[in-house]
């Protein structure tokens, strides 16, 4: 059975959505309940920049992979004698 590699991106998309939601709630809390001042604004900027940094870094790493390729169960599971015979966890 052929499994497309892009299937790995599905759980990642959920995690990205989940973390983005949490980021939003963090920023919302700071904007709503924080004390007026440069500190809260600086913190919100740090949150956005740090998240974007990790996100862009991740996307850059993911772009190097050919997601259109397919793999078989033999490739994935070591005990079925897949292409990576030295694999063993």
């Amino acid at each position: 059975m052929d499994i497309p590699l892009w299937i790995l991106l599905v759980p990642l998309a959920f995690i990205v959505a989940f973390t983005a939601l949490f980021l939003f709630f963090n920023i919302f809390h700071l904007a709503r309940y924080g004390v007026v001042g440069r500190g809260a604004i600086a913190l919100i900027l740090v949150y956005i920049v740090s998240y974007l940094f990790v996100f862009v870094l991740g996307v850059t790493a993911l772009l190097d992979i050919k997601w259109t390729e397919t793999v078989t169960l033999r490739d994935i599971l070591p005990f079925t004698g897949g292409s990576s015979s030295s694999f063993g966890l």
Binding site: P11, L12, I15, L23, V54, F55, L57, L62
Partner: peptide
């Protein structure tokens, strides 16, 4: 790794 880093960051 990407998922892990995002979760730890958040």
């Amino acid at each position: 790794l990407v998922a892990y880093l995002l979760v730890i960051l958040v």
